[in-house]
Each structure stands twice: as structure tokens, then as C-alpha cells.
């Protein structure tokens, strides 16, 4: 159950997307998200959605794992698009009952919203699926290093992020272990009302917090023992290098943006 959460996980591979420079990938993924919001009608959004699917196929991440991560957010998608149906009164009325009016434009907007959220999640999770946590924080540290001028300690922030990311799978394992142990003592986590279920979580969260503090202290001592004094002036073992493929990707994304702007002008805007 808890192992189904794949958002933020990394799946090693050797695809084009895996091999891209992490800085280029991070910036282009950010650009891609902006492109999603530039889309004004279903045609341009459809192109962007198709491109996101193409990237997924290119990355060779199993479709099954991606679908699994959607299980958790189906509710959000349905809720946002349902709201669009009821709050939109433009267009021809298809269905009218009491105060509820459903219009064709409302239906299309709902579809637009659903596709937009799905595309957002697909593209942003693709970044973590194909980039190892260390490379990702390394990229963030380098991309944000100009912030040093503002006296923001970027390297410490990057270290904190690395540790936080590294601990996610460890803590998921820990939750799994504690859940198994309490289930072995007859804990019932699946039945009962909201309050009963919330109470049933106490035997899991108390040990989890106690153990997290213990781990945090141990890690802090271990880092101090190895003379860690903050990240200032630390060098990296591997240098990051932009390749031809990264410049190629920049052109592809720029092309996509141009295409989307053109399609926006040609077809009628939905929102």
C-alpha cells in the first residue's frame, strides 16, 4: 500500500532523458511547466500532453508505476474538473436542474483542467523518476548559486535537501516495518470511522517520530565525526558537463513553446 507512492522516486536507466545533464533537465522541466500554462485551448494542450507522453515513453519508465502514482491524486483531478463543470455558465446549456446548469463549454473546461493537472504531474514526476537525488540536489545547488550574493547559504540548503530526499525511502521503509509490527499485534488500520482510524495511527506515528529523532542525532554526530562544518568550499567528485543532447533538448522545448503560441492564435481560446 504505502510502497505504491512512487512520486519522488528514482528509477535508474540509460535513456536519453536519464543521460541529460541534470541542470538542463531541471531548467527545461521548469520551462515545460510554464508551457503547460501558456496553453489556451485543447489543441495546444493536446500537443503538450502528447509531448509529455512521448517523454515518458522515451524515458522507458514502466507505465504501470506511473499509473500507480496517479491512484493517489485521482480524487484531486476529479474534484477540480467537477468544479469547472458547475461554475461555468457560458455556452449552450446541455442539462439544467434546480440551480445546476451544465454547458458544453463547462464540460470542455473540465476536460482541459483534468488534462492540465495530469500533464503537470507527468512532467514533474518525470524529473525525479529519471534523476538520482544526488544529481538533482547538485543541479539545484549550481543553478541557485547566484543567490550567494544575497547571503543565502546555498550549499547548506542543498545538503539539507539531499538528506531530506535520501531519508524519504528510509522513512517509508520504517513506516512499513512499524506497520507490520503493529499489525502483527493485531492493529486494525483498515476499518472503523475517521476518529477510530486516526487513533489507530498513533501506534505507528509515535515510534516513527521517536526513531526519526534518533536517526537525525546519529547522522549529525556521524557528520561531525567526519569534520563536516557546513558545505562552504566543498568540491564535487564529478564535474557536470553539458553535451550536444542537452542543447538539442533546449531547441526542442523552444520549438514546442513556439508551436504552442502559434496554435493558441489559430484556434479559439477556451480560457
Amino acid at each position: 500500500m504505502i510502497k505504491d507512492i512512487t512520486i519522488g522516486q528514482f528509477f535508474p536507466g540509460k535513456s536519453f532523458i536519464h543521460k541529460m545533464d541534470a541542470r538542463a533537465k531541471f531548467s527545461l522541466m521548469f520551462a515545460f511547466i510554464i508551457i503547460i500554462f501558456v496553453c489556451k485551448n485543447l489543441v495546444s494542450l493536446g500537443i503538450v500532453f502528447g509531448f509529455a507522453l512521448f517523454m515518458i515513453i522515451l524515458s522507458k519508465v514502466a507505465i504501470k508505476t506511473i499509473l500507480k502514482s496517479f491512484k493517489m491524486i485521482v480524487f484531486i483531478i476529479i474534484l477540480t474538473s467537477a468544479l469547472q463543470i458547475f461554475y461555468n455558465s457560458k455556452g449552450t446549456v446541455l442539462f439544467d436542474w434546480w440551480k445546476i446548469k451544465v454547458t458544453d463549454i463547462g464540460m470542455l473546461t473540465a476536460l482541459f483542467m483534468a488534462v492540465r493537472i495530469i500533464t503537470l504531474i507527468l512532467s514533474s514526476s518525470l524529473l525525479t523518476y529519471t534523476t538520482s537525488p544526488t544529481l538533482l540536489t547538485d543541479a539545484i545547488e549550481r543553478l541557485f548559486s547566484p543567490l550567494k550574493i544575497l547571503r543565502i547559504n546555498v550549499s547548506t540548503l542543498a545538503m539539507m535537501m539531499t538528506i531530506a530526499l535520501r531519508f524519504i525511502p528510509i522513512l517509508i521503509d520504517e513506516v512499513d516495518r512499524i506497520m507490520s509490527a503493529q499489525k502483527a499485534r493485531g492493529a486494525d488500520l483498515e476499518t472503523g470511522g475517521l476518529i477510530k482510524r486516526a487513533k489507530a495511527l498513533l501506534p505507528i506515528f509515535i515510534p516513527l517520530f521517536v526513531n526519526s529523532f534518533r536517526r537525525a542525532f546519529e547522522l549529525a554526530y556521524a557528520m561531525e565525526c567526519r569534520c563536516y562544518k557546513g558545505g562552504e568550499g566543498r568540491t564535487r567528485m564529478t564535474a557536470m558537463k553539458m553535451h550536444i543532447r542537452d542543447f538539442f533538448a533546449v531547441f526542442v522545448i523552444a520549438g514546442l513553446l513556439a508551436g504552442v503560441i502559434w496554435v493558441n492564435r489559430v484556434f479559439v481560446a477556451l480560457i
Binding site: 516495518r177 512499524i178 507490520s180 509490527a181 503493529q182 502483527a184 499485534r185 493485531g186 492493529a187 486494525d188 498513533l202 501506534p203 509515535i206 515510534p207 521517536v210 526513531n211
Partner: peptide, 25 residues
Amino acid sequence: LCFQYPEYQLFEATVYKDIAYGPAN
């Protein structure tokens, strides 16, 4: 079933209550 390092699953306010968790369930 008693897992490895079972002391990391203790959670109650007293030892008595913790031992009673299973039978109470």
C-alpha cells in the same frame, strides 16, 4: 511474530499499556 529490533515499535505511555496493546486488540 516479533520482528527484528522490536523495541522500535514501543509507543505507549507505560510498559504495562504497551504489553496490553496486543491483548486489547
